[in-house]
Structure formats: C-alpha cells, structure tokens
Amino acid sequence: MSGSVEKVSSGTTKTPADFLKSIRGKDVVVKLNSGVDYRGILTCLDGYMNIAMEQTEEYVNGQLKNKYGDAFIRGNNVLYISTVNRTLGDGA
C-alpha cells in the first residue's frame, strides 16, 4: 500500500479484483439485468459473479417485495454490484 508512486495520484486504478476484495462483508446493492435490486451484506462471490448475500431484501421497481436470510444469486443475471451510497441522510 505505502510508497507505491508509479501511478498519478488522481488516477489510481482499481481493478474488478481489487473491488471484490474491498467489498466483502459490506452492505451492497446487486442489480440484475431484469432491473430487480438486492440489498444486503455480501458474504462472498466467485469468478462467475455468483454471489452469496445475507439479510437480503428484494426490491422490484423500488418497492420491497421479499426478504431472505441467505441468498445465492447466479452470476449471469448480475448487471452490477454497488457499494451502498451513503448520500441521502443515511448516517444518523
């Protein structure tokens, strides 16, 4: 981490592998190609983007439709994995 100065400070790269390492155990949103969102805690994932999540909430058109204690999502359906944005008054 320290003292690696080969990249310009503004443009530090973060590869998909780096991203995946950084989000384990974090709150994430997984969006599927169908438009359905899953919010929960990322347990782990693999090279196919198969995902295991805990405390998963399923949102269809922004509306909570279902809750799962654990959930496995098949990677081919995944559009993106997002960190949870803490923008709108989320942190009290």
């Binding site: 599927l32 169908s34 899953y38 998963t56 799962y68 204690g69 654990d70 959930a71 496995f72 999502i73 098949r74 081919n76 359906n77």
Partner: peptide, 13 residues
C-alpha cells in the same frame, strides 16, 4: 436446468 436460475434462498438458518 441451471441457466434459468436467478436466485436460490435456503431456509432461514
């Protein structure tokens, strides 16, 4: 067939 699967949810642990 696996290619149709979107999500698998085990029973609540």
């Amino acid at each position: 067939r696996g290619d149709g699967v979107i999500l698998v949810a085990p029973p609540l642990r």
